[in-house]
Structure formats: C-alpha cells, structure tokens
C-alpha cells in the first residue's frame, strides 16, 4: 500500500528570527524531523520516527502524572473521531488523549450518522473537513479505508484500526510498554504473539515495529489462522525475519514477552477453528503454559479479552499481566502521535 503516507513538502527552513527567545541558531539538531502527515501504519516509520514517538510519549506520561493532566498543546485544534466499528478502549483513549492536549474532540457515532443513510466514506470525510476537522481518527472494518480517506482529506489521518490490516497506535503502545520493561533495544528478546494472527491488524502492525526493534518475533496459532504469514516470514518485514509456528510449546519456551490475541468469535462461522473449547485447550494462554516462558516474562493483550478462551482469567489478572499498563500507556502514546501530527500547521 503506497498511497497515503505522503511526505510533507519540505519545510526545512529554520524559523525566522523572533520565534525562539534565544534566536534559534544551533537548535536544528534539537528538533528531529517528523516527516509524516498521516499515521496509517507502522511500516513506513524509521527508527528515528519511532524514537521520537517514544520520547514524546515519555513526556506525555509526565503530563499524565500531574494532578491536572492537561496541557494546551493542541488548543483550538479539532480532533474528530470517526469509528465505523465498535470500540471502547481505542476510542476513549484517543478522546482522552485529545482532551489532555486541549483539542476540541468531536465524536461521531456512525450508527446515528448519515452513514446509515448510505453516505460514502469519502463524502463523510469531506463533510467532516468542511465542518472543521483537522485531525481525523478513523476506525473502519475495511482494510485500506483510512488510506482512501487520506486522499480526500486536507488534514491529518490516524488509522485507529482498518480491517485486518493495521493498528499503528496499538503497535506503538505495545512497543512502549515492552521497552519500559526491557529497555530500548529488544535484540535477542523473544516476543511471542499468540492467537488469531490471521485476522489481527494488531499482529500485522506489531510485526513491523517489533522486528525493527530487533526482537526475536514468533507468531503462533492454529495453522488456519496463520495463512499467508509463512510466506511473509520467508520474505521478512523489510528483510527482517520472524518465525511462524503452530507449536505453542516451542513458541512459549524461554519467551520474554507473550502477547495473546483475541479469538474473533465473529470469524468462527467460517470454521477456521472447530470450537472455542478446543481452541482454549490447544492454544489458550494458561498459567501452566506460561511456565515455559522465562520466569520474568510478562503477558500482554490488546483487548478486548475472551477470558477462558485465548487467555485464562488467572493469567490475565495475574502478577505477570501488564494489560492495564498497556491501556494507560495507550493514552500517552496517542497524545504523542496527535502532538507530532497536529502540533503545527497542516
């Protein structure tokens, strides 16, 4: 997918005098460039881009620790949330992130909008722009929908999940959460993504960021839910290899991080998994299976969870779970993304 993530026209000129109190010179090195107009997936992020998101998220976390976790960074900016699919944590996370930056957050409930009258995505996006939307956060059931929207929108677009394709802010908050525990380099660290990989936009976006961070990435699940990934693994993500297996024991052995993915019940109709019970028995992340991982290994889940299916309740709520930390970090990372995209003129 090459559309959408356009580079901005070169803005390399140092600001004229009068903008920095010390006159600006020599500060260029302190201002890393964020070249992206949109955040549609993690595949186009360079190592430097990721570091900038992580550093900005650190600062946002400091803001969140304050008694009043609000700064005026996006005051007067309009952040519009357009969610065509159900979501609690991602939508609320973006809403809180926008409000913490003092943006005007507009929330579109598509079920109560003209979308039900058959308005197309492109028309909706154009309408929202005419209504003042400057940054549009889109979740859509169709892979690529945010890319289409980006071609018809004058502001910034953040992909908050499109079909099976990508969920970049989830991958960034996962990376942030892992780095908080393991440090900046994940070289040699075994990270296992376990579950319904096939239908998971979280898994796809994570492949880019985790392999780029140097992790020893394993994708594990029933063979029917790994289709296509063996071929991708052979090619690698930007040349960086990862492992695909249905052997859950081999995957979990000596793992540093285990990320369980939701089994999407709505996919069961297609008979990719015989039954949820059988899935839980063969691939569920139980306390017993987790014993194969390193003693200090921790457990992640992008939510929402089917407890007792892909993850046992005792694991989800156990001492190794960082699931609520992921949610909290999600706000900081999304604040960072909004700030990097919209903290200046479009």
């Amino acid at each position: 997918m090459s559309v959408g993530l356009e580079r901005e026209p070169s803005q390399a000129v140092e600001p004229a005098s009068g903008q920095s109190d010390s006159g600006g010179a020599g500060r260029a090195a302190e201002r890393p460039t964020w070249p992206h107009r949109h955040l549609l997936d993690t595949d186009v992020l360079t190592g430097g881009d990721v570091e900038l998101v992580m550093a900005t998220a650190d600062a946002m976390k400091q803001v969140l620790a304050r008694p009043i976790p609000t700064v005026p960074a996006l005051r007067g900016r309009n952040v519009t949330l357009l969610f065509y699919e159900a979501s609690t944590r991602t939508r609320v996370s973006f809403e809180v992130a926008g409000k913490n930056l003092s943006a005007n957050v507009v929330n579109i409930a598509t079920a109560a909008s003209s979308v039900t009258k058959g308005e197309s995505l492109v028309d909706t996006v154009r309408t929202l722009e005419a209504l003042g939307a400057q940054l549009l956060v889109i979740r859509h059931g169709v892979s690529g929908a945010p890319y289409l929207a980006a071609r018809h929108f004058g502001g910034h677009i953040v992909n908050a999940g499109d079909g099976w394709h990508a969920h970049p802010t989830q991958a960034l908050l996962d990376l942030y959460t892992i780095r908080e525990r393991l440090g900046q380099s994940l070289a040699g660290r075994k990270v296992v993504v376990l579950g319904d990989v096939l239908h998971s936009r979280v898994a796809r976006s994570n492949v880019w960021t985790l392999t780029a961070a140097g992790a020893d990435l394993w994708l594990c699940g029933p063979a029917t839910l790994l289709r296509g990934f063996e071929a991708w693994a052979r090619v690698g993500a930007a040349g960086r290899r990862f492992t695909v297996t249905s052997d859950v024991n081999a995957a979990l052995r000596d793992a540093d991080v285990v990320m369980a993915l939701r089994v999407q019940r709505e996919r069961m109709a297609s008979a990719l998994v015989p039954s949820l019970r059988e899935y839980a028995a063969r691939f569920g992340l139980t306390a017993e299976r987790l014993e194969l991982a390193r003693p200090e290994a921790f457990v992640m889940h992008p939510g929402p969870m089917n407890e007792g299916v892909e993850i046992a309740p005792a694991v989800a709520e156990g001492p190794r779970s960082v699931i609520t930390t992921q949610v909290a970090n999600g706000v900081a990372v999304r604040m960072a993304v909004l700030q990097l995209l919209a903290g200046r003129v479009a």
């Binding site: 390399a12 600001p15 903008q19 964020w34 600062a59 700064v71 903290g343």
Partner: peptide, 22 residues
C-alpha cells in the same frame, strides 16, 4: 521546565521540538 506544550508559536516552527521533560 519544558515549555514545548505551552508555546504559542509551535505552528510556526518547521520541525518538531524534542520534548526534554519537566
């Protein structure tokens, strides 16, 4: 004190300031 999030001229600055922390 890092004042990045409080500047009124951020939109005029071509590149993103690296936030250094408060």
């Amino acid at each position: 004190l890092d004042i990045t999030f409080y500047r009124d001229d951020l939109s005029l600055v071509a590149q993103q300031p690296l936030v250094k922390g408060t």
